[in-house]
Design a protein around this nucleic acid. Structure first.
Lengths: 199, 199, 199, 199
DNA sequence: AATGAATGAGAATTCATTCAT
DNA sequence: AATGAATGAATTCTCATTCAT
């Protein structure tokens, strides 16, 4: 039946998503027209609509991919053999060599996605799924720290995880909107202020 | 000259901004049409355009007001006579009684504004102004803590301030997108995990 | 009854028309908004509408005034005691010192009026009235030339008059649209080519 | 590449221009809305905008076509093998069988174009180009008459050409605005009054 | 499978005009 | 008489999507 291989279809689909991501980073979801996207992907309108039924579907796919990427990156970092010290968590997650690598483009895309998630139940759902995943993984990390006596056993896993994810998200905002934001300057604040201080 | 009082003009302008804010919270900047906005404000198109020259001008005004509101709220909290313990900072800033009061609507609006700031140099500028203001105020707070010996004197003010603002922004994201996010559950994470733990 | 003198009313009306003429010369009838006109006349909308019922009425009044001015100027020149030689007719009518004085502004206004006359029966009527008047006056001039033996008695008055008016209109077009058009350079063509040549 | 032939695209473009010309003749440039034009062309808005980027572009194209048509027609008539007598020039140029054929519609369109040229530098430029072309061609005609001894060698070519073009334009005004204007009644004036008379 | 011309609803904005003050 | 805030229909143009080829 199929006239072209599945691999070809997948590649074409990814070509569209890659082009879309570049456009969305540049201009956001709404200010990117299908014409922009088609030009970036070097495709025809009719061609694209074989792979996605609507612009919205592309937006959702990009959002899902990005959100899944974030929680995946968190799992990758956390799952590493050697447990990183907590105060390096943001650099580990968002720094240059990390699987998440929150460079400015990635950060901008995430901010766009959050904004869209606030309007689209579909994307909000994806956000919550990814968030829950990260929460669980980081909860396990907390438990491990507690097992090793590095964190008080009274700390609530979920609350602690949300705080760490919040730190990461806060960094993403700065990365997206401040020219000089960088994991290496965000991290010391974490180390110095909080772990070095007392309440 | 004017046949209506300045107060009336100001009220009308605010009526537009209030309607715009409600629409933008609900649907974001781009998915809100001028028709939506006009219906919400119960105004005619021509009438509105006496107060703002374009939709963009309204968006910018809303963004400026909101960003300025955040840094103003931070100043208000920090400037209070009694210095709050650091680990209550997010609740103080974003909690129910606070001047910022990051309820879900306010949080959603902020997320929209960040997304728009990533595209609009004008709004990005406003973000950076507000950010710098908050940075300075919190820097002063850090210094005060250091003077009192509560924080190590080696901590860099700017880095520490950025971290605290990041915590706040991270909470805003959760407030906007998680149904159960609340300052009272975010704060304990801060207290428990970080101040109660060791690196 | 009247709270202000008739003279005041007339002056106000003329103030509007003068402002309108300046706007129309600059931008044409359609590209001039009532707001432009109100600013130029330093009046309020409500105020103006006491003197004219619509923008169209102002346009028509300006057109009528201008067209009547042209035929009036022709009468003035023709009616002079000393009969001007025919080949100086355009300079006499359109030159610096003439009552018509087709400077660039006046020429541009006339061209606007013709364009509007092609759409508006009301203005076309005014054009035809003014044209008939000029035709009659120039017809009389032709007759006088014939009486003096300067023109063949076989020449049809109307046809000759239309030709002369055509010359004048042709000059107006050039005056409006060519930077270097001038009665002094248009006239010699008339003198040299036609009266100096033979068929 | 294209799924329709170039001929189809050209035809579509011309279909738009033809519809536009009909609308503009009827109502002028400004009083013709895009909706009018779309209805006349039996096209959708989106379709039309593939061929022209703006209403202004259509106006400019129509103006350019018409102005170029006039100077082209002048060249065609002047370039004929047999040199026409000067006093038949307007009939030759504007009469029924001529390439210019200044029927009422064409005349009205020209008058609209002049009015627009007074406001639009772009169209004014086109007018001046076409005018220069016609000036040059008619200058050559004058020279030929002079070579044959039919016109005094002292006559300035440019001035004479401008006068003849002025005659033509003057006729166009009458054709546009007087119900009974016709080349056959304009010409005799030229023949009778001027060539038959003496100064 | 792919193209790109075509659609038409909907977007932001303007403008002549009205009318409460 | 005069003001200018307000109206809302109309304007130009865009855009996601479809479908004949």
């Amino acid at each position: 039946m199929a006239r072209v291989s599945q691999a070809h279809l997948d590649a074409r689909r990814q070509q569209i998503l890659d082009a879309a991501r570049r456009c969305f980073v540049r201009n956001g979801f709404h200010a990117t027209s299908m014409a922009d996207l088609l030009a970036e992907a070097k495709m025809s309108a009719g061609g694209l609509y074989r792979y996605f039924n609507s612009k919205d579907e592309i937006v959702t796919a990009i959002a899902a991919q990005a959100l899944h990427g974030v929680s995946g990156a968190i799992e990758a970092v956390i799952g590493a053999q050697t447990l990183p010290p907590l105060h390096t968590i943001v650099r580990r997650l968002a720094g240059e060599g990390s699987p998440l690598c929150a460079d400015r483009d990635a950060a901008r895309l995430l901010v766009q996605i959050w904004a869209e998630a606030a309007r689209s139940p579909r994307i909000q759902e994806r956000f919550q799924e990814a968030f829950s995943g990260a929460e669980a993984v980081i909860g396990t990390l907390i438990a491990e720290y507690q097992r090793r006596g590095l964190i008080s056993p009274e700390v609530n896993h979920t609350q602690a995880a949300r705080l760490l994810i919040g730190l990461l998200h806060g960094f993403v905002v700065q990365r997206a909107l401040l020219p000089d934001a960088h994991p290496d300057t965000f991290n010391p604040g974490l180390a110095g202020l909080i772990f070095g201080g007392t309440s």
